[in-house]
Each structure stands twice: as C-alpha cells, then as structure tokens.
C-alpha cells in the first residue's frame, strides 16, 4: 500500500505527518522523501545514510563535425532546448526533457546522448524503517525525473509513505502518481483552503482516493471543514495547534514526542485507509 502525503500550500505539515505515520506503523515501512527541492525527513527519522547514488538524465550532444545546422532538431523540440542560429546549433541542457526526439529527427546522425547530473538519492535503514530521499542539484529546475527515481525504492507488498513536494504542479503529480491513496494536509486558513481546493481538483483529475488532515485545527476558522462536508471529503484527523509540537520540532523531534497520543491516531488512520482500499479492491 502506497500512501502519498501532499498538500497545496507549503508548510501545512506534510513532513510532520509522513514521519509520524512512518514511526507509528505496526508493519515495516518504506519512507520516501520526494520533496527533492528541500528534503527534510532525514532530520526527524535519525537514520544514517548507508548508500548514496547520483541520478542522471540523458541530454543531447551535437557533433559539430556532422551537424550542418539544418535546424530540424530545434524545430522538433517542444521545450526550446535547442536553438538553431544560422551557423550554429546550441543546446540548453536545463530545458531538456530527455525525450530523445532530436536524435531521431537529425538527418545527419549528429546527435548523441550524454548524461547530465540532476541530483542524488540517499538511503538507509533502521529496524523496520527503510528510508530514501532525493536531493535535487542546485540550479536544476526540473525535479520529476529525480522524484520518479526515488519512487523506484518502493517495494510491492510493503507500506510505503511518500512525502510529496508542495503545490499541485508536475513535481507533486509525479510524487503522487503511483500512490494508492493521497492524504491532503491543510490548515484552517484562507490560504490553506484555497490551495486545498486546487489539490482536491488535482487528485480528482488523476483519480486518486483521498482524505484530508487538518493541522493546527483550532487556529483558524471552520471554512475548511465546511468545504470538506460540502464536497463529501473525509477529514481523517485533526491535529491541534499545540506549542509542544513546535518545541519538539525545533529540536528535531516529531509530533509523537510532543503528543504521544498521536501514535494511536496515526495507526487508526493507517488501518482505516487500508480497510477503505481493501473495500475498493
């Protein structure tokens, strides 16, 4: 069972919840930190990385000896990653989506592929908790290829918790794409509600069963609850706004350190999701 923890708005508590779920489960867990632009699960799970691997994507390399600057590669590229400028043809690696189309359309066979480093994956294990985390290279604008590599660390038949990047664009979609269930974490503020609506639209579009967790539930108003009731979306858990959580967090502790009673809540939520998915077949 793969559960992605996502949100529209950043800072609502995705990592807090992902870590708490992973540390509460009664079965072995694989925790995947897919928030590759700023991964931080490792700060809370206390696992030393015992493996690190670089991740590359293929990008075109043009053999100037064979290229006659006909411009077909530039014309083909939908991402403007190649420019044909009269007497020269330029590649802009950071715009390339690695489709390989330019190589296919080149009549001179002048384009080959070379590797471009986009980030690295670190992983480790402690007891029943396996952990993998992606870190995007600074300056690289494209995270989905790295997120997809992190997701390959999932194993079928295991409980997998995916900490997704914020937002609802390609990185978030990549992170939740293989999940069986999505937990949307929000907060009862106007921003929280606004971005929750966009996140709900997104998971509906890609047909993922989902529920909502309201973090700092007593800090705002009841509009998130009213919205969920109207839309018939289950609020699976409400986490109170408690200073003890902030204190624990500032020391690298988890919500379970601050509110031990949350462990039972996390287990209850995991069991409920598992039952729901079982019923759906």
């Amino acid at each position: 069972m793969k559960i992605a923890v996502a949100s529209g708005k950043g800072g609502t508590g995705k990592t807090t919840l992902s870590v708490a779920l992973s540390l509460s489960a009664e079965v072995p867990v694989i925790l995947l930190d897919c928030d590759v632009e700023e991964p931080n699960c490792h700060l809370f799970v206390g696992i030393e990385e015992d493996e690190s691997r670089d991740v590359f994507v293929p990008i075109p390399e043009i053999d100037k000896g064979k290229c006659d600057n006909c411009g077909r590669c530039a014309q083909f590229c939908q991402f403007n990653a190649i420019a044909s400028l009269g007497s020269s043809t330029l590649v802009f690696p950071e715009l390339c989506h690695s489709c390989g189309g330019c190589m296919k359309v080149c009549p001179k066979g002048a384009i080959s592929e070379k590797n471009r480093l986009i980030g690295r994956i670190g992983s480790g294990r402690r007891g029943d908790l396996s952990f993998a985390s992606g870190t995007l290279e600074i300056g690289n604008p494209m995270s989905p290829p790295l997120i997809k590599e992190v997701l390959k660390r999932a194993e079928s038949g295991r409980l997998v918790i995916i900490d997704s990047p914020p937002g609802t664009s390609c990185p978030m979609v990549a992170a939740v794409s293989e999940a069986d269930f999505v937990i949307l974490v929000t907060e009862p503020t106007p921003f929280g509600l606004h971005d929750l609506k966009i996140a709900v639209e997104t998971v509906r579009e890609i047909r993922k069963p989902h529920c909502v967790v309201v973090n700092r539930c007593d800090s705002g108003d009841d509009r998130v609850e009213r919205y969920c009731a109207e839309q018939k979306i289950e609020i699976a858990l409400k986490i109170p706004d408690d200073r003890r959580v902030a204190v624990a967090y500032s020391r690298g502790g988890t919500i379970l350190d601050a509110m031990p009673e949350m462990r039972a809540e996390m287990r209850r939520m995991l069991n409920k999701i598992s039952t729901k998915l079982g019923e759906m077949g």
Partner: peptide
C-alpha cells in the same frame, strides 16, 4: 512555458 528568449533569438537571427 519556457525558452521564450531562445525562440526570439532564433526569430531575429
């Protein structure tokens, strides 16, 4: 979505 400057450069070239 991206590469507008590159395309514009191709246009003027």
């Amino acid at each position: 979505a991206q590469g507008a400057g590159i395309q514009s450069a191709q246009n003027v070239v």
